[in-house]
Design a protein around this nucleic acid. Structure first.
Lengths: 227, 227
DNA sequence: GGCCGACTGGAAATGATCTTCTCCTCATGG
DNA sequence: CCATGAGGAGAAGATCATTTCCAGTCGGCC
């Protein structure tokens, strides 16, 4: 099993490329079709989510919206949780790009980091206008059942924050004795959680004010104890 | 409906106390029996949870364990989620007491706060030894569906942290311009989330070290940017 | 053209759970 | 002793995710 992983080569050096190409060509079409279908499921799900502002949709809804069938759904996805994960990763990737772009407009590394943190906070809040209720429901639920996958999804964002933090560190603007990687991880987790946690609101007798981006940045950057 | 909430008084000032007493007496027994039953459900659920280390039990299991019936369960609880909430509140209350006790042994308010934060962190981690897998699964799930209730459950802990933070503030040990209430809220949320988030672990290729209590305290207290 | 196999849609079947309901029994208080 | 409400047993409803079946479809191949 260590060699010959799949049907790649039966006898090493054998199987002239023409045959591989033929197979490849006949494969490509199907692959494309599959990708389109997957995308249709993803689009439908995304639509439903932004529409009803929650991630509590049924597989059936997605299937109906995408004008495909359950049969097909399960042919392309291992299950609902894979669909969720895919959407989550995608949303996070888009947010990461957005944050990256915003942060790149700053010369001062600390300013960049601040911008990143504040934007991440805004993007992570529940329903800033019904656009992205994804993290709020997803991540928490998945965190319990599939922590590894959630971390995989977080990876690109974490990398971005790490690199921003490293720049700050390089400029000597990081507290001494603090690893940029760790700082970035803690910051990311804090921002995302506080955003979702203090976002939803609020029985009358509960004047829990929602926490502002400013406040969160102040907390992460400055801590709470005076030097 | 604003007056006469229940069967307390039909005509204000009417209903001589003897009748009220009679009713009250005949009520008390039933009330006690009900409380016992509720407790049996709670105990059974708690047992199952600590036993299988997860909160994924079925109502049926609880019913069986408590040697009662579904009929009875739904007579005493609005549904499964109320049971969960009750257990959650209880666990949190116990943890709060424990933290309170630990913190009270310090003269220096900052030491007290540090102790509280570190203990809260430990208590919030997934499976420090299969004793308290409650927060880890509960809170996240509930946060999405019943944020108000989660906040209500968090209230006692938040009060404790707030009071500890206020003491630190009174001693001039808090960063200037920072409200003790807000600082406490942010700290609590950060600690609890980072604990659950960095607790579970970890695909081989993922050397995400779990974050230590020390690190978290350092982060909350000192922030990440040098003064 | 005609055949073959992978892919699909459509819909019914499964299985797990939560929740409700019906039929009874029983202890308690009057 | 009787009326009453609580409680037990278990069937019945409801939702969903996930599987299975049954039949067409479509593209490539002989």
């Amino acid at each position: 099993m260590t060699q010959n992983t799949d049907a790649l080569v039966t006898v090493p050096g054998d199987e002239p490329t023409w045959k591989q190409r033929a197979v490849e060509r006949s494969t490509r079409a199907a692959k494309l079709r599959a990708e389109q279908r997957v995308q249709r499921f993803l689009d439908a799900a995304q639509l439903i989510i932004t529409e009803k502002g929650t991630t509590d949709f049924t597989v059936q809804e997605v299937v109906d919206r995408s004008r495909q069938s359950l049969r097909s759904f399960y042919q392309h996805f291992d299950g609902k949780h894979e669909l969720l994960l895919a959407l989550f990763e995608d949303a996070l990737r888009r947010s990461t790009d957005q944050i990256s772009a915003a942060a790149s407009g700053h010369d001062d590394p600390v300013d960049a980091l601040k911008t990143a943190v504040e934007l991440l906070f805004e993007l992570s809040r529940p329903d800033p206008s019904a656009k992205r209720p994804l993290f709020t429901d997803f991540a928490p639920r998945l965190m319990g059942s599939h922590p590894a996958e959630v971390r995989r999804a977080h990876a690109p964002l974490l990398e971005l924050l790490t690199s921003l933090t490293e720049e700050a560190s390089g400029a000597g603007r990081l507290r001494s004795g603090l690893s940029p990687q760790r700082a970035a991880a803690l910051t990311m987790e804090t921002v995302m959680f506080v955003a979702t946690s203090s976002g939803a609101p609020a029985a009358d007798d509960d004047e829990h004010e929602p926490a502002t981006a400013d406040e969160v940045w102040s907390f992460c950057s400055g801590g709470i104890i005076s030097a």
